[in-house]
Design a protein around this nucleic acid. Sequence first.
DNA 1: GTGATTGCAAATCTTTTGCACTAAA
DNA 2: TTTAGTGCAAAAGATTTGCAATCAC
Lengths: 153, 153
Amino acid sequence: MNRLRPFTAILDRLQQAGLRPTRQRLGLARLLFQHGDRHITAEQLHAEAMAANLKVSLATVYNTVNQFTAAGLLREVVVDSGRSYFDTNMSEHHHFFLEENGELHDILDQNLLIGALPAPPPGTEVTRVDVIIRVRSLDVPEQESAFVENQCV
Amino acid sequence: MNRLRPFTAILDRLQQAGLRPTRQRLGLARLLFQHGDRHITAEQLHAEAMAANLKVSLATVYNTVNQFTAAGLLREVVVDSGRSYFDTNMSEHHHFFLEENGELHDILDQNLLIGALPAPPPGTEVTRVDVIIRVRSLDVPEQESAFVENQCV
DNA sequence: GTGATTGCAAATCTTTTGCACTAAA
DNA sequence: TTTAGTGCAAAAGATTTGCAATCAC
């Protein structure tokens, strides 16, 4: 029910969140939610909007992703200081971060098992657990020309 | 062996890394490593340096923490977009992030169990696994709900 | 019409960089 | 002396904000 959310559902959720379904918000929502799970920065979303002939300013893109995040439509993922990613997948999951190109990929729940969480400090409650697995390409030899073969899952 | 690293060891490690042990670097290293594990931003470190009468510019603090990180003396922890924390604890460990005040706290290894890691995407290798447990104050000033039990994800 | 939203530019904030000066080797 | 390191100010990015114009209701 989370995939390919119908357009009307987006409209409803905007209205539910008290956000007027303006041309800009609807257009950005379409870009974000129409094609499945995405990990995107505000800059990237703005570029897509321009390419799609959606007239929207960068400031409005920033405001919009922040509003969507506050409304529970998006989730901010922090992996890189100085850049924010927004994730359209609101289910509980974790990420691979490809250091070379800055890509984020979802980790399927079944593949990451956290056995036990420590108790949070007294007087606090857990709001979220983020696991980031940082990876880099094997084909970039650092020092020695260690001949590395590709591996498969 | 990692705690309270003697001053001479820092000097040695700077020299090993090809970093001249200047007044600024030695002073910053003293602030960072003399009092055990720390999680600090460049701004905070600069403020401490000023308070300790160590004359050093903010630019030099930034350069220094970056050089220390490259040299393996510090580790950068990304929890907050737009701010970098530097951790003096180089052993493998994870963090609580207190959302209200921006504090980072180490999680003892024994308290966080990761059962299984997924295989990294083909052609990549894992460089690091970061687990951030975000917590917030139980804003209800009631003294109920003393300790939360361990949970699974 | 009225209040929310947008766009633009300017402002902020963190971090990096260029360059003349200083200090370590 | 020679080269690395420092400080300052300016630059660079990412993001936010003030305010007049515009749009949704």
